[in-house]
């Protein structure tokens, strides 16, 4: 099975800080990592390869420095890497990103399965995976918590619908975005890292794309306009209740009703 995994480089720290004056996300250029949710996708891909053979390719869009997440995927067991990088791709929203990546995937060769993480820790939209499948005109299932069976024609998976778990069959080629904890991601291997040290990575620029349409990439291709970024307000108002368990339960219940939480 040939699998392509979409990955992204995100800020290394989980504590994103927004400059309250300029509204710009404070980024430390040196401190980056692979989007933690993508680790589950890479792990899933490598396990499928270990079980049924084939090849795992990873693809990302970003600055040339995003090479580090490709190398990290090699150290986890990926075989091939692609980076979509061009000034023209900068400022892309989910739509332009999905379009650009779908173009890159068309250049990455034959595939049976595309795997994505659930969402990223910096954008948090969880939309890029499904949108890529639209551009590639292939079926897609999101929130996959388990792969039940790897068939010749497709996969049987469990999909988390929040109120129910649905068992689905999806035909190849397809896109699956996997949920957190589908498998515990392995740690990158030093041995694999050394072995893949000189491995070539395929850089794809705007000029290489099969469909060169500037209105579909980068800021030009992004209908989403960011008006303002601000840190979420933090409410640290606290109230301490005392009394017997019964009294406190009553107080909490009244409070919740007053505030229309229940």
């Amino acid at each position: 099975m040939n699998i392509i995994v979409c990955i992204k480089q995100v800020p290394g720290s989980n504590k994103a800080e927004v400059d309250p004056v300029t509204g710009v996300l404070k980024r430390d250029g040196n401190d980056t990592k692979m989007n933690p949710y993508d680790l589950y996708a890479v792990e899933t891909a490598v396990r499928l390869k270990e079980q049924s053979g084939g090849k795992v390719s990873v693809i990302t869009m970003g600055p040339p420095s995003a090479e580090s997440v490709i190398r990290e995927a090699f150290a986890m067991g990926a075989d091939e890497g692609f980076i979509l990088t061009d000034r023209k791709f900068a400022g892309a929203d989910v739509l332009a990103t999905s379009y650009t990546i779908s173009q890159g995937i068309k250049m990455a060769g034959e595939y049976d399965l595309i795997l994505c993480g659930k969402q990223t820790t910096d954008g948090d939209t969880a939309q890029v995976g499904p949108e890529i499948s639209e551009y590639l005109n292939i079926p897609c299932i999101a929130n996959v918590t388990s792969i039940e069976e790897i068939g010749d024609k497709g996969l049987t998976v469990l999909m988390d619908m929040q109120t129910a778990i649905e068992k689905c069959f999806i035909e190849y080629p397809c896109l699956v975005s996997v949920d957190k904890d589908i498998f515990l991601p392995r740690l990158p291997s030093y041995v694999k890292m050394k072995a893949s040290k000189d491995q070539k990575i395929n850089f794809i620029t705007y000029e290489d794309l099969p469909d060169k349409d500037e209105t579909k990439v980068g800021l030009n291709g992004s209908p989403t306009k960011v008006q303002r970024i601000f840190p979420p307000s933090v409410n640290d108002k606290r109230e301490l209740f005392s009394g017997t368990a019964e009294e406190m339960t009553e107080t909490v219940l009244t409070k919740l009703k007053e505030n229309k939480f229940i």
Binding site: G12, P36, A75, L187, P188, S189, Y190, V191
Partner: peptide, 8 residues
């Protein structure tokens, strides 16, 4: 092997 842990 030597496995690398470099994130939180």
């Amino acid at each position: 092997d030597v496995l690398i842990s470099d994130t939180d």
